[in-house]
Design a protein around this nucleic acid. Sequence first.
DNA 1: AATATATATCGTAAATTTTCGATATGCAAC
DNA 2: GTTGCATATCGAAAATTTACGATATATATT
Lengths: 107, 107
Amino acid sequence: MDMDETMSSAELDEMIKALSHPVRRDILNWLKQPEVYFADQEHPLSIGVCAGKIDQKTGLSQSTVSAHLATLQRAGFISSKKVGQWSFFSRNEDVIQHFLARLTDQL
Amino acid sequence: MDMDETMSSAELDEMIKALSHPVRRDILNWLKQPEVYFADQEHPLSIGVCAGKIDQKTGLSQSTVSAHLATLQRAGFISSKKVGQWSFFSRNEDVIQHFLARLTDQL
DNA sequence: AATATATATCGTAAATTTTCGATATGCAAC
DNA sequence: GTTGCATATCGAAAATTTACGATATATATT
């Protein structure tokens, strides 16, 4: 009954590639403590962090950051919730933990 | 007195990039159990695994594999010992463990 | 010395990734 | 419905990575 929650090697590959860009690791880190890095957000941080705020922090263009966020999301590290015209991003802690466990024993 | 054995963020970046290619992860894995994957090696496996044996296993060209091995070595994951005309590669288990620990709390 | 073998390095072509500006889409306010 | 704002997607240029064959280097054998 699919109790086994192991990721395929293709998924692992996608995840490692997602981590292989410093800006994407930065984003993941910022999302770890939104109250530290995004204290100025009007909307409650509990929903997640607004894409625009992340754009600002990176200094990269809106479209580039949008692509980075999509990469992180495809890898499963983050999710987005759409509220009105905004997208709010937050970490999937379980996926991250699972990834680390998998990497630890596959490496 | 430099008790702190923490890697810089540039080093971490180099290490993650080194892992971001499936062939390099394969190599690291093969080197984990040389007796399983390189049972046919004439020289004692305790010295490490001969570059040529790794070439064969990947199916890639000699020069390409040499470059992959250099990448893994620059990242610190493996070391090489030169004996005669051969280069023998082996894992740096301590570095790998240290990397995993660092990644686990930085991610 | 000449030859053979193992590996590293060089130059380069192909593939992939990163980035941007422009545009499209979707929602909100007027 | 038009205007404004937030985000996603598109198309293309630039940068980086991967791969190869050719060559260099170094050791071993004859």
